[in-house]
Design a binder for these strands. Structure first.
Lengths: 219, 219
DNA sequence: CGGGATCCGTTACGATACTG
DNA sequence: CAGTATCGTAACGGATCCCG
């Protein structure tokens, strides 16, 4: 176990003592998209050593951010889940995702639809722009269906249910294009948005695309 | 140099490739409070090895987040400063600080006034609560003076100038108490707030104290 | 004194192999 | 499926030394 702490009276240093180790925030990213088994986590975190993943999970359990949950009989044994304290990491993940968005270059390898929705689109959520907003969005990305909703200005995952205000259909790469500021006209064939103009306007206020004006685009 | 990258098409992984290494975010924390010399950084980051600090600074310069700046003759040669791209890390630092706030225990060692203002108080800034707000706050903490202002819902550092709407006078520890949710009555002798009731109300909306309802308070 | 560079012991990480 | 065990390598931590 990495026992290294910054040992400083600082909220940031304290937070990083909990979640600052390598892989830890990416584990939380995976869990913030939903419960996951050990193998799911391993699949979502290419390159992580199994012993390290184990160590990180124990460490997160110890910090009270993650807990194991046993599933009923037929399903595979256990899943990992964020605790009530653990979900407090979401704004951190959103902020990091917004920071990193302009640095993302052309896709390498496959893009998981769920990552495009939660790590890409939903990560752009802007609480200030969303004040008072209500919106249900249905994503159909590479055949996978995901729902998110904004209720009274607060972002939540949602389940399939009542009619969506907006339906976004297409590929994960196309969705990333939208997040990075591409215009809808440029995404014909990759992404299609169905819904009222009013709903689209609310969407744009709640999920403003990342500013691409970085002076220093990495090569 | 740590050349390890997560090599994943993910905004968070990409961001962590830039700023996820040990000490890097704390270096940015220091610089987000203002320009700093090498020695200032070293002083603000107890325990960091000098070679490591050098390596992190080079790496951040390389990423375009930090730049060296030469000062006129009499002053010590160079300072480090966040670039225009670099200041984009601030929302990340704020989010991390808010996450870490409840885990902060009693102070160990000296608390720097500047850290109490920027890492503590200003870190609680809530864009959603601040929509449309305007406020100038003057901090007098352990003899140090710092100003922040909210202009049309956006947070900025400020310089001494026109009358503040609110003046907060006291100790760094007292200020942390306020941030963590202590009531003003409990901070008599440690912290004093001067200003109109209306300004105080705006302040509370812009800088809501961290929820202390963590089920799992660390020991 | 500010701003590092060099060296070296220790720790954490990465890859793979193996097990209940 | 969900880990544990092992081991070589890379990164970190601390101290010392160097140079303008």
């Amino acid at each position: 176990m990495p026992t290294k702490t910054y040992d400083q009276y600082c909220t940031i240093a304290t937070a990083l003592d909990l979640v600052g180790d390598r892989w830890t925030l990416l584990v939380l990213r995976e869990l913030s998209m939903g419960d996951a088994r050990f193998t799911d986590l391993k699949a979502g975190l290419p390159g992580v050593a199994t012993n390290l993943l184990t160590e990180r999970l124990r460490s997160l359990e110890n910090a009270g951010l993650v807990e194991q949950h046993d599933l009923p009989a037929p399903a595979a044994r256990t899943v990992y889940r964020l605790t009530r304290d653990g979900v407090r990491i979401r704004p951190v993940l959103r902020a990091i995702a917004q920071f990193g968005m302009p640095y993302l270059q052309a896709p390498v390898g496959a893009v998981r639809p769920r990552a495009a929705v939660f790590g890409g689109s939903a990560a752009l959520f802007d609480p200030a722009g969303a004040v008072g907003a209500d919106l249900r969005v249905r994503y159909l990305i590479d055949g996978e269906e995901h729902w998110i909703e904004v209720v009274d200005g607060r972002l939540r995952r949602a389940d399939a249910g009542a009619e969506p205000d907006l339906t976004i259909t297409g590929t994960a790469v196309g969705l990333f294009g939208l997040n990075r500021g591409a215009r809808r006209e440029d995404l014909v064939g990759q992404l299609q948005v169905d819904g009222s103009a009013a709903a689209w306007e609310i969407f744009c206020r709640c999920f403003p695309p990342s500013a691409l004006t970085l002076e220093n685009q990495l090569a």
